[in-house]
Write a protein that binds this DNA or RNA. Sequence first.
DNA 1: CTGTGAGAAATTTGATCATATTGTGTTGAG
DNA 2: CTCAACACAATATGATCAAATTTCTCACAG
Lengths: 227, 227
Amino acid sequence: MDLIKNKASGASADADKLPAHERVYQRLRSQIMYGELVPGQPVTIQGLTDSLGVGMTPVREAIRRLISDGALMFQGNRRVSVPLLSGRDVEQMIFARISIESELSRRATVNIKSTDIDRLEQIDQQLDRTIIDGDVSGYLRQNHTFHETLYSHADAPILSDLAERLWLRFGPSLRVVSGRLGTQCLPDRHKDIITALRKQDADLVAKATAQDIEQGMELMADTLTST
Amino acid sequence: MDLIKNKASGASADADKLPAHERVYQRLRSQIMYGELVPGQPVTIQGLTDSLGVGMTPVREAIRRLISDGALMFQGNRRVSVPLLSGRDVEQMIFARISIESELSRRATVNIKSTDIDRLEQIDQQLDRTIIDGDVSGYLRQNHTFHETLYSHADAPILSDLAERLWLRFGPSLRVVSGRLGTQCLPDRHKDIITALRKQDADLVAKATAQDIEQGMELMADTLTST
DNA sequence: CTGTGAGAAATTTGATCATATTGTGTTGAG
DNA sequence: CTCAACACAATATGATCAAATTTCTCACAG
């Protein structure tokens, strides 16, 4: 153990337990989901190896996974970049998100406990603060956390996985839209969702979720197509 | 170039144009989709490198992609295996498939040309022959080709991608069910779909598609849960 | 004397890296 | 403006290290 120099770069104790390719994947995934990577921006293997301090193999694997996720796109000549959604893409995603996530909301309503709803309310309050502060990055994070937390009670891993995949696709584009419009006019029908949850009215929860999704996505579609 | 032994194994000229990791991915994907890999069967990197005659890196990348696709599952202690669906999994997939694929059918109805419908009819006839012959593998292939061809006219790449992902997940389990029950009692509501397509009745096409999906998946659910 | 179980060695498999090779884009000379 | 040479980035391999499972051995209890 005399000259082991690696493994200590992360400094975080628990992060060391994950293999490098997993860490790279999680990091990139988070950066894409919360719009820290600009659409159109090229992603190079060697750039990542240099900045993250790991070999090429873990980076390659992480990039491949993200391409399969639809979070990155293979730009023809072995070039990889962050995708920018077209109006047609967004339109399909509106349909898919409403189908899947309404159902997740409906199923979550049955299982969720009162204390879980309190937790959701707490997340929504933090989200309100990010809107007031104009904190785009924080908004994206809290908004995702709200939906993810809600869906986690649906006990439907396959549907949740499909939803996550969709979120990953529109992350960068949503960031662009949010940055352009500011946080003020972003949708937040979470209050309706919470109210409906307390009433244990699954259909109403599903409806509120659909409205939340539709509002946000239409805003995105409008902004993207007008460019 | 004296002792180059690889690159000539495939023998196919065009296959050489694809990078190795892509070829490995396509091959494994096909094997999983059409049930050539048994659920529960462990998938090892070194086993693949030996049998396919490529290095570990391309194999690793292909496996990573397939895990992201849900076609392979990460079995805890860095072991990878072919997943077997539970009844709960199938139930979620019924919902997702009907939502997504009904919509794909509906959209395809608008765009599809008469000659395209002829092509579908031709595929369905080949499918009938596989049922008569009891050719399980051929059935899976032709059935997938039918749906894939139909959906290709929907002009909805993101929805198609979601559907493909789902097909990849239930491939191995469907193979198990088909092998156990034989091809005779497998569903084929494709005649209804074709008739509805000729009438250009999108709602009817969507309905027939939903029935085709529901029949097949319920059969799968029943067989899997009764085990 | 035999069967069972704990512990250690060995084998198998996965993870990472350094390096060689190949393909693509670009730049400079004719 | 075209073609060739060069540079850079991606692909692919084999070697090496680490982890986990399996197997083998030995001791102890019945």
